[in-house]
Nucleic acid binder design. Structure first.
Lengths: 212, 212
DNA sequence: GCCTATAATTGACTTGCGGTCAGATAAATA
DNA sequence: TATTTATCTGACCGCAAGTCAATTATAGGC
């Protein structure tokens, strides 16, 4: 409810944008506090200080809120990679950026199986275009820092995205309270932590890229 | 409803096993015909010729049915790999086996984000142990056929599982009716098909394994 | 073969959530 | 200030997962 002044309704475009931002912020906080699977539209509405009906003026479904959030977080991840990666730190940055942007992994892990099936074609296609664009930005960084040809860097960017997806899935399992995990499985859960499993893949891919 | 003779209730262990099998078969057919997201417990019950309540005598939740099915299909994938892979066809078999066992990819794609969060600890841990065991069986095949040391083969097996997860996610998107996809995105969707994206990763991993 | 105890089966019911829409009303405009 | 516009609301709907008291098939004892 960070609407300009003491207005209660968003009439102008900028006011609508402010409300949308407030709703996405509320969604963010709710995923953070309750976990992705337990977030309800009522809870988001309450957190945002609006009614449930209002949410549906700004998104066509619950998953469209999640999709918008995902695009935001992915944008942040890519920007981070562009801004901080150097020749020496590329692997390091590629590995840690996704893990350090809050909610990115949680949303990525649900993107294809949970979020996208429940989103209008329109919103989906727009997101796909943005994803493609961000993939290319990462490819550019890789090409610039490794000296690999554009084409190969694009391939690497896609394989990275694919393995990141897998690693994000694995990471979900590790969220489980360690107290409840039997001893003989603790190891199996632990090795699935995101940075642990993903860094192996990143090194493998980058290494393959710099070989003749 | 393939219960022995004309019995209507499963009293002995073997009869219960038969009923369980029948229920899993019905679940399979329903996912096949309606798609994972549209399957309901009522529909499964009807297909199996029992009531909804009966389903809950054989599984604690809908997702536990899916989990049991997943283990079945993964067992089949691993067995296939063990039985048909040779030194020359390893990459080929690793790529195609997952795609050829019906429902395996659909279930794998939902395993961590959808199925596991809704399953009792008991069922989850049992599944994890089986998964680990199957991972080792694949590692053995890899070690045997490539001559790589056990340890390295286990690492490769895990990275394979991780990328397979990612590829299964990507594959969901390609299920979309091509008619509805805008021209500029057709390419982006197409390259995400399972065997297309996964085979690249398989070759990369096996190649890394056979290098000094 | 009949009776009884056991427990498998049923399906109406409860619960909870996503999504809708007719009415209420804030705010821009005349 | 009156009128118009369209944002906002929340009671309501539909649907699906999951429950449980009542029903009844079946095994085992007589």
């Amino acid at each position: 409810m960070t609407l300009p002044q003491n207005k209660k309704r968003a009439r102008s475009d900028s006011e609508k944008e402010a409300r949308r931002t407030a709703i996405l912020g509320a969604t963010r906080r709710k995923i953070d506090s309750d976990g992705f699977d337990k977030v309800t539209m009522n809870a988001i509405a309450h957190e945002a200080g609006v009614s449930k009906g209002t949410l549906y003026l700004y998104a066509q479904s619950k998953e469209e809120l999640f999709l918008a959030l995902f695009v935001e977080t992915m944008e942040e991840v890519v920007t981070r990679i562009e801004d901080t990666a150097t020749e020496d730190t590329l692997a390091e940055v590629l590995t840690h950026a996704p893990a350090e942007v809050p909610l990115f992994l949680a949303l990525l892990a649900r993107l294809f199986a949970v979020i996208e099936p429940n989103v209008s074609d329109e919103a989906l296609f727009e997101e796909k275009r943005r994803m493609r664009e961000m993939g290319l930005r990462v490819a550019n960084v890789i090409a610039r820092l490794t000296g690999a040809p554009e084409e190969q860097a694009r391939g690497a960017s896609m394989v990275l995205m694919l393995t990141m997806q897998g690693a994000a899935q694995f990471d979900i399992a590790t969220q489980r309270d360690p107290e409840t995990v039997p001893d003989d499985l603790k190891q199996a859960f632990a090795v699935q932590a995101f940075t642990k499993s993903y860094s192996v893949a990143v090194r493998l891919i980058l290494w393959g890229l710099t070989q003749p």
